[in-house]
Structures are given as C-alpha cells and as structure tokens.
Design a protein around this nucleic acid. Structure first.
Lengths: 357, 357
DNA sequence: CTGTTAGCGCCTTCAA
DNA sequence: TTGAAGGCGCTAACAG
C-alpha cells in the first residue's frame, strides 16, 4: 500500500468552475502575467483549500525533471556529532527552500557509493552534496563531475565543483591566540598527529598554531604524536609526561584527544588549567561534559551543511572553495593567569580536587 | 539545472530492435511469464548496458504511485549518537530493499512536523517512520493514521500502527543481573529520575532493576534523582555522597549520568569499580571513553532502525509493538569480586590512581 | 511472443 | 481568459 492522494488538479478546476489551464496558472503564480481575474483566482484557491489539494510531485517531476530534493552522500557511519549537526544544518536550509533531503550512507564502500549516487540520480535529485567525515582531499566519483554537486568537508583538485570547508588555518591561529592571551603561550605542545596523507584539517590546524605562536615569538615547543582518539591520547601523553616535560599548554587536535589528555594529566597529578592549559578542536558535546569544561575551537558543522545546501541551490554559485569560520567554544580549560576571560559557559567548579579528570 | 538522464526506454527498444513493451517486460523481470525469447532478452540487456540506460523513476512513480523511498520523521536535533546509529541501521536496511531514505528533522516543532510529512506525502514516499528521541508515548499527527507508517522508539496508544522499541524492561533486569553476578547487588542505588510523564524508558529500566533485585532478595536501596545529563548527575551524586551513604553499586539511567557520577565519585575519593560498581544504559561511544570503560546496557539503535524499515516494507506486518533486545556492552566498571568476567573490551589500566576519573 | 494503445497528473504552447 | 492537444517516460491491458 503506497501513500497517495486522490484530488487532482482537474478536480480543483471543476470545483472552481474553470479550466485546468487556469487552475494551473493560479497554482504556479503565473496568474498575474496571464491576467486571470482576482475573483477567478480566489475561486481556485478556495477550491484548493476545500479539497485539500496538493500537486502530485511525481507528475510534476516527470514534466519538469525537477524534484525539490537534494541528495547527501556521506562516507561516515557512527559519527554522531558530525553527521547529526551537519544534517541538521542542511535539513533546515533545505526546508527553507522547500527541498527535502535524501541520505546515502556509503559506509566508506566505493561500490555502495556509486550505487547510492545512481539511485539518487534515478530519482532525479536536483543536486548532490558529497561529504566526508575526515576533512580531506578526495576524488569524487565520475558520476558527479558533470552534475550539480557540492563538496562538503572535502575538496577535489580535479573536479570543477564548489566546496565548503571549515577555515582550519584561521581556527589554528585562534586556538593559539587564546593561549597567548591567557599568558599560556610559552611552552605549547600539540597533541595528535595526522597520518592520512590526504587529510587537511590536522596539518592546517598545526600550521595555524605555529603561525600565531611564531608571530608572538614563542615557537611551538613540540608535538606529541598520537591517533585521534581518547585512549591513544591517554597512552601517548602518559608516556610523554614520564619524560619530565613541563608544558605550559597543550593544543589537542580534537576533543577526544583532549579527553585522553585530561585523563593522563590527572593520573600524573597535574591539574587543568592551573598546571596546564588545554585547548582543542571540535566543540562537540564532549567538551561540555569534561571537568573543567573544555575550551574548544568549534567546527561549524551545521553552518557547513547549510552553506552546502545554499551553494547547491544557487545556480550562480561559482565553483570555488568556501571557508566557514570556526568559532570559539569557551570552557574553563585555559588558564586565566593574564586575565583571559572565558565569556561563554562559566568555568565553574574548577576548584582543587574536583578538577581531577 | 537539474540532474537528469537522456536515454529512454524507447531508445533501448530501438537499439535492440524490439518494441517498448518487450523492453519493459525484460526490465521488469516479467519476461519469463511473457515468454520472451532468451535471445531477445539478451539483446535488450545488451542495449541497456551499451546505452547506460536507467529507468526514469519520476515516470515510474507517476505510473505506479510508488517511489522506493521512505521518509523518516524525527524530532531530535543535535543528538549525535541516537540519530546516526538509527539512520545507519535504517539506511542499510532500506538499501537492502532498494529504497532510499528521505529525512525530515522537525526540531520538535509540530508545525514543521506536519509540513515535513506533507512534503513527504507529496513525493509519494512508500511509507513513513515516525521517531522520537525520548522513548515515550505520543500522539502521531493525524496524517499518519491512515497511512503506511511505523513508530520508532515511541508508541501511540490510539493509532493502530506498528511500533519498534528497545526492550527496556529486560534491559533493566540484565543491568541488575550483571551487578548480582558480580556480587555487587547488596546496596544498589539508581541514579537519574524521569520527569517526562510520557517517557517510558526510565520507569521501565527502574522496574526491571527492581524486579531482578527483588528476585535476588536484595531490594533496591534507593534512588538519587537527577536530570539525565553529566553536570546534573555530578551535582546530585556529590550532594548525595555528602550524606554518608555507602553504596555497593550504582545503576545510572544513561551514560552521561554515569560520566557525571564518575566525576563525583572521583572527587569524593571513591574508585570504580573497587569501591563502587557502576552500570548504565545507552552503550554510547562515551562508555568506551571513560576510565575505566563503562559497562552499559546498549540501546540497539541501528537494529531498531533496520527493524522499523523492515516492518514498514513488509505488507503483512501486524500493527503490534516489537521489542528489540538491549545487549550488554562490557567495560570495567563493575567489580569482579565474585568472579564476574567482563567478556568484551578488556578493562585494562584500571590500576589505582589512574582510575580517578 | 510482440506491437498498439491508453493513460498516470501536470505544464505549456497554440488558437479561439 | 480559456479549451484543446501534446508530451514528459513508463507500465499494462489488449490485441495480434
């Protein structure tokens, strides 16, 4: 049993006592230019109301080769934060333009990816957003090359398609700036290391940090390499602390690394932020759950999603790379020694003993 | 500019030197029953290949009032874990049956909800999954009543629709069973309290816990009421610990509550699991990030999503409530005093000092 | 076995 | 202003 409607445009026309053509004109807003009398138009509109008429989009699509639907192809699976935020932004932007979003989770399988794109093209989507979990350089499937598509969180150097990305470089700089402003810019280390050669977030963040620190005359003290997750960060930082280093601040490349770092510091008897300041990237829910709350450079997922939709739906959009600014999510993980004030969430309950996590 | 194809069925037929009808039969797999020669069929298939033909779904939809598309209406926004896991399961199940999923995030706004459903019905979705973030009793919009729809994570006592839910009661029992098996069943408290009168997860979990404990002759020692989030749990447990209680184990109603509880226990100098065992519900990523890793009764989101899709697509499915089992995600947060063995992740690195978080 | 025909519901000339 | 007519691409009787 499929969901369908009964009322046809013909019924509306009959009820209004006009021709289908006239009814059609009214519905398309072409009534003015067709010089349809206001009275007639009103009759049609009443009929639409009374009958609860809605156009049949299948018929419309067949006729216009348009569906008011956009596809989102993504390679990520269980990545809660990214996926939902991005889809939320995209969904809202799509709704604002009367479009619906159809999703295609490829689970990273290129064959599935191609299949999903085909399915979407079959359904005449008006365009496709191609997005990846990891900010990286990619090669989009050939199917997308000649079509209306926008890359989200990735770029393809050979395909001539618009792309939407976070401004990682500026994000890196602002992370360092926060530390500098707090007077915690002397011995700054980065925790995390990018291993994917196509990834661009990590390198750009580090570059931004280095630039800002260099400008202040306090070069980056070093890097603690580790995979981007809680446990690897815990292990790496624990081992590193055993070498008797005395960091002023740590820049963690994402919030999960920061969590592992909190754990390692706590185990080593170091407190955040009094002993060590921490700042990271993501601005996920996790940042708010930690104690003290983590100061994090937020990835504007929702904005990216919305921007991608707007770009896709804008026929005049150039095929350039758009960089969306990363904003600061204030927590209490950066020392306020030199009067740096967190203006967002209150870094309450940061007292000794309780901060041990 | 919309994405569209060129090759029509007529082209394929022409290329194969047959009529459109014949080509159509081959494509629909009706060739056998129409007794089309294998040779002819082969010619058609070749033509399809050579021309890269794919049927135009808009045309198909207009003709068959079917779209091979299902809609998912959800009220949740930034809820990473739930949303993505559920969509992953639903997406995979849909793909297995050649369906695509179109999403409708209502952000909890009833007006948006109605609008989204209309948009979906306009697009002739074959059915709609109506899902809510909080497991609860709801009243679905009237539009859904008469249509092919399935409720996911909620029930509507008056609408005659199938519903898919986690088996919270059994989940509650198994949580208590884990504690009992570990010899930590003597002074068990529940942390968290449901305030939404329509919610069903909380009450059922507690009921399950109580039943299992009662069976073992060690009734629930009490409840520490708090909102279901990290900070409220931290506050509540901290205040509660100040009253000199000596819990054997805590059942946290979700993983975020458990995180806040970890924090409060650490601040109070109590260790998990040597001093207090902890078990919670959700089985989210967070459980694995905590130290020691949290033992949690997993909500089978992906399975629920898949089940909902299968139910929706099965014309013979009865309009009953399906309960999906909650499985145990093993961590190291439950004492193994009496030889209880966590069989999943290794609860490594649980040594003194490091467990303080 | 295969071709002919008639719509599915809607938009859009073209004439009137 | 409006009616008639064609056609988007495909399926499904109904004849051959």
């Amino acid at each position: 049993m499929s969901v369908q409607r009964r009322v046809r445009l013909a019924d509306v026309a009959a009820r209004a006592g006009v021709s289908r053509t006239t009814a059609s004109y009214v519905l398309n807003g072409t009534s003015a230019q067709m010089r349809i009398s206001a009275e007639t138009e009103q009759r049609v509109r009443s009929a639409v109301m009374e009958l609860g008429y809605r156009r049949n989009r299948s018929a419309l699509s067949l006729r216009t080769a348009t569906t008011q639907t956009i596809g989102v192809i993504s390679d990520f699976v269980a990545t809660g934060h990214f996926a939902s935020q991005m889809l939320r932004g995209a969904s809202a932007a799509a709704r604002a333009q009367d479009h619906l979003i159809v999703i295609g989770e490829t689970e990273g399988d290129p064959a599935v990816e191609i299949q999903m794109i085909e399915e979407m093209l079959d359904r005449q989507v008006d365009g496709i957003i191609y997005t990846t979990l990891v900010t990286a350089e990619v090669r989009v499937p050939a199917q997308l090359r000649e079509r209306r598509a926008v890359l989200l969180n990735c770029v393809d150097p050979v395909a001539d398609l618009p792309a939407v990305l976070p401004d990682e470089l500026a994000g890196g700089r602002s992370a360092a700036d926060v530390l500098l402003a707090a007077g915690a810019g002397e011995r700054v280390y980065v925790v995390g290391e990018e291993v994917n050669p196509h990834a661009i977030a990590g390198p750009q963040r580090v570059q931004g940090v280095e630039e800002a620190l260099a400008t202040a005359g306090t070069p980056l003290a070093g890097v603690v390499p580790c995979f981007w997750d809680v446990e690897p960060a815990y292990e790496a930082v624990t081992a590193w602390l055993a070498t008797d280093v005395t960091p002023t601040a740590l820049v963690c490349l994402n919030d999960r690394i920061a969590m592992g770092t909190y754990q390692a510091l706590a185990a080593h008897g170091l407190q955040v932020p009094s002993d060590v300041s921490i700042i990271s990237f993501d601005g996920s829910e996790l940042a708010g759950w930690l104690r003290p709350a983590l100061t994090s450079v937020r990835i504007p997922y929702a904005e990216l999603g919305a921007l991608a939709v707007q770009t896709l739906l804008d026929p005049t959009a150039p095929t350039t790379v758009l960089r969306s600014p990363m904003t600061l999510l204030h927590g209490g993980s950066v020392s306020s020694a030199r009067g740096y004030q967190s203006s967002g969430r209150q870094p309450t309950r940061t007292g000794a003993g309780r901060a041990l996590r």
